[in-house]
């Protein structure tokens, strides 16, 4: 019961963990490489959601000073995630470039088929 209460209270954290696991599962089980990269993106954004929700405080304003608001949410997680987002985009771009090249060499983007082709070549 205590656990259920804790989860209900931290529903944002719980949702981000669920999404994280969905992305993780997609990455582990699907053999299609593009699907793997999609899973990787979902996993990363889930972690980002988790970090951003750490910084949120109920009833406080966005961290832009100068208006009427006196109390602000924690700005540090947002600043970190801004970095994380860009990192994610560069990783995705590089992975996709490699996938295009894999397709040109092997004629497939399926990890299992590639493994088969390589074992036949040997």
């Amino acid at each position: 019961m205590r656990i259920v209460n804790g989860i209900a209270q931290n529903y944002f954290y719980f949702a981000s963990m669920v999404i994280f696991l969905i992305g993780f599962h997609t990455m582990l089980t699907h053999s299609n490489l593009i699907k793997k990269i999609l899973g990787m993106n979902i996993m990363e954004t889930a972690v980002f959601l988790f970090v951003v929700s750490i910084g949120y405080v109920r009833g406080r304003a966005a961290p832009v000073v100068g208006g009427e608001a006196q109390q602000f949410v924690n700005p540090l997680p947002s600043a970190l995630i801004l970095t994380g987002l860009v990192v994610g985009v560069s990783l995705t771009a590089f992975a996709l470039a490699l996938i295009i090249k894999v397709y040109q060499y092997y004629g497939t983007v399926d990890a299992d088929e590639i493994m088969q082709i390589r074992s036949e070549e040997r």
Binding site: I3, G6, I54, V57
Partner: peptide
Amino acid sequence: LGVLLAAAVSEMPPFAAPSNPAD
């Protein structure tokens, strides 16, 4: 992993509360 993380979530500091360690 899911069971572990769920247990961890239930133990985390309350969401959106003003007196979290991060504040």
